[in-house]
Design a protein around this nucleic acid. Structure first.
Lengths: 252, 252
DNA sequence: CTTGCTCCTCACGTAACGTGAGGGACTAGC
DNA sequence: GCTAGTCCCTCACGTTACGTGAGGAGCAAG
């Protein structure tokens, strides 16, 4: 009776009505998702009213990203435990969402570094990406945003000043280490003060961030040193630790 | 000289070192992304130091989701305009992010409706999905959140009360329409008052939401009526519009 | 010389179709 | 009755980034 009211549709008609492509309907037929219940003697597909209804259900489920074979099982298996299937799919989507967000943040970080520079060689781009990934391992997303915000307010020239200051302090400390200077030495303690100021400029006084920075530099020293030579190594951290004990307040 | 320092690696060694699979390295070779610059007489792949470096760049770019053939072009073409490529990729990622977020929200909406119900037939699930998609067309994400929040605070029984109230009002209005009752009729105006209260319960007094609800019901009446019969049609909206003019304040 | 590990080259499978290739079916106009 | 145009059919390959064997050779140790 339902079928006599609306005559069966051919693929083209159903395609234009639903906005799908003919190929898509063929595909659904091939995989057994929507097999038209009739054919003309010449083999043309005929979709009855029930078929169209089934297709609408398929489109609904597909609109939430369900894979086709899962849709087929859903439509086949009746009303089993939909909750579990939905929860599984939701988990998949959440994972994909997190992944895409990670990629987006990495790429935005990259784009920020490109804003000013005119023509950056590819190797530098890769270094920035590696640095970004390494940071993800040692800082929480909130901490990364925190660091990012401070870097943005500082401006490019101030960043250069900081880098230059490190470029003076590290060799000076290394020289003291080589000489075996005592942690009580005033010159060394003055260097420690400047060190602490620079750390604070980066961490904004956040102790956790400072601790994570130290952890990163100590564990990934080889990696960091490969791209940015003249950085503190674990031995220097230990040495400076003694100096900070003398002047109080810790390294950050 | 670089190659004499570190002897070339075979696939297995490079795979374990980089965490990739042997098959992946084979694949990179097949598509010309990373062709080892040497082979043993027996045909075994030998990756030189330069090859390893290239692979590290590949891994960096892949960590931001670049497709392999784009990476190949990047590594091949030197330092062209990386900005444009990065921007394009960023656009792709943003689009994908938006898509996944849409799907997630649809599915969460679905999951909310399943929390209480024990065993929902599939057709009902599809109806909820279709309703969700229709709502996306008429309300902004903020408005949807607004509506969702009100629905959550109301609770299930209150929702049932509202539905029952509509179930009384609509037929009553329809009866008046059939009789040709004047918009000045007090009974009709009392119905209009209850109508407005129910609308406010849904919209929270938000005029924009109320207007969008009317637009949705008028334009999608056929769809809505197919799943939820006994809903206001455009004629009833016009009729009630006259009544609301008499009592003042509009329908929402 | 065999065992066991690594390496090689095919080559098919994945998800959801797009895009022809080559050939019937059906309608309208001549 | 013939033909042009539009619809339909069935292969069948291409897409992405590999996974997973199948079948066979290289190579060090016992």
């Amino acid at each position: 009776m339902t079928q006599s009211q609306t005559p069966p549709l051919k693929v083209g008609a159903l395609a234009t009505q639903t906005g799908l492509s003919v190929r898509t309907l063929h595909h659904y037929d091939e995989i057994g998702l929507l097999v038209p219940s009739q054919r003309t003697p010449a083999g043309h597909r005929l979709y009855t009213y029930d078929d169209v209804q089934r297709l609408q259900q398929i489109q609904s489920l597909r609109a939430t990203g369900f894979p086709l074979d899962e849709i087929r099982r859903l439509l086949h298996g009746g009303a089993f435990s939909a909750q579990r299937v939905i929860q599984l799919h939701l988990d998949r989507l959440q994972a994909q969402l997190a992944q895409t967000q990670r990629l987006t943040e990495r790429l935005q970080q990259l784009a920020r570094h490109l804003d000013t520079a005119t023509q950056v060689p590819l190797t530098d781009l890769c270094r920035i990406i590696e640095a970004t990934i390494m940071m993800e391992k040692y800082f929480t997303p909130e901490q990364l945003q925190d660091i990012q915000a401070r870097g943005a307010t500082m401006g490019a020239e101030q960043v250069r000043n900081v880098e230059q200051a490190w470029g003076e302090i590290i060799p000076a400390v290394r020289a003291h280490m080589a000489k075996g200077t005592s942690p009580d030495d005033p010159d060394l303690q003055a260097l420690a003060s400047r060190w602490r100021e620079l750390v604070n400029a980066f961490t904004g006084g956040n102790r956790e961030i400072a601790a994570n920075v130290r952890a990163m530099y100590q564990q990934e020293h080889a990696q960091i040193n490969a791209v940015q030579p003249n950085t503190p190594d674990p031995a220097m951290f230990a040495y400076m630790g003694e100096v900070f004990k003398r002047i109080g307040g810790g390294p950050g």
